[in-house]
Design a binder for these strands. Sequence first.
RNA 1: CGGGCCGUAGUAUACUGGUAGUACAUCUGCUUUGGGAGCAGAUAGACUGGGUUCGAUUCCCAGCGGCCCGACCA
Length: 412
Amino acid sequence: MLQSKIFSKTLREDPKDEVSTNAKLLERGGFIYKTMAGVYDFLPLGWRVLNKINNIIREEMNAVGGQEIFLTAMQPRERWEKTGRWKLLGEEVMYQFKDRFGHEVGLASTHEEAVTEIATRFIQSYKDLPLAVYQIQTKYRSESRAKSGLIRGREFLMKDLYSFHATTEDLDRYYKLVDESYLKIFKRCGLKTFVTEASGGVFSKDFSHEYQVLSDAGEDKIIFCSQCGFAQNKEISSLDEGGDCSKCGNKLKVGKSIEVGNIFKLGTKFSDAFGLYYTDKEGGKKPVIMASYGIGPGRLMGTIVEIHSDEDGILWPEEVSPFKIHLIALGDKAKNEAENLYKDLLAENIEVLYDNRGDKTPGEKFSDADLLGIPWRVVVSEKTMEKKGVELKKRDEKQAKIITIQELLKIK
RNA sequence: CGGGCCGUAGUAUACUGGUAGUACAUCUGCUUUGGGAGCAGAUAGACUGGGUUCGAUUCCCAGCGGCCCGACCA
């Protein structure tokens, strides 16, 4: 991609109406644009990052047998009446309105109702189980207070996986599988998460589990053991800071954290409401046992910025970076050389953002490179041409080195 | 939803009861090219509505919008 043509521009100053690191850096870098509080547009760079994250999630969801689907945001009131949540969620987070024919519709803030209703058509026998479906889809929530950029919005992307089981044993087996899958996802996104015990809600006396990333930008508080990884949400925990970890004896700490994902056993709440039953081997009729598993890709993106940034800008972990290489041409004399290198990199299928802007000074290009946070910076200039190579610098290192173009093309 | 702070060019900021200045960005020309470059010129701005006033961007009220704290968070 040519930086001179990109549908965004970097800003020199922090936007005055943002305080959180992720919002400031993502807006300054031109990754996102704010349409209203808690509602952000994704511009080319941001959309690339978001899709990198989504694809990591897809790979891991497919690996645990998830089938990707895409459900509607707009849904009729009647569906939500089955669980009594039309009123409940309407009073809290759900956008509801009448269309011009007077039909009452709502924008889904979650999809248990939808997926359970659909499942009643396709799950009838124990032979249809287990089953897992997921989507990456836009959710709407009328949050009383949007905050912290991408961390808490009113329109946001969510990956939601729903699993259906004949027995609690099978649900437990799959729950564990998804837990491992989630840890892979967050690791690939460059995040260290604490699997945190949290309230299971009114329908389960088990814990649910949240994936928490320690960060001052977070709105949750967890008590955790940095040695063995045990963690509980402070909302439900009776443990105290400085106490001993019951698992390993280490001292417990308390910290603010961002919830980037959660997994939750639903039991038969939705199956009962929609009449989702299956016939077992003996011919008996039984409710399907369900669980749901969420990850917010946009929130994940914001969290990555909170964790991986310095005073100059973002440091994208390689797997989610919008590009692998940021190629910078300095000066007219280096233009042809840089142009050729750009083509060579493209031919090798290396993702490269090429700063071909002719009217920017070196300082501005370097500052932009630091802000955008692409892991590898490659400079072509008169100086590097004299040395018969190009300059390579990692975003998280101070020192640059000169390497040959042949070496560069092999870095993949 | 309660409380606080705040709305001035694309961005960030000044000053002002007599219609607004600076920097960056943008455009033109020339120069320049290793950490936000120089000269000359150009374009561009008071959230909305009401009130006070001869006159309001400025003062007052309301609305709308943004951020922060708190409550809430399927």
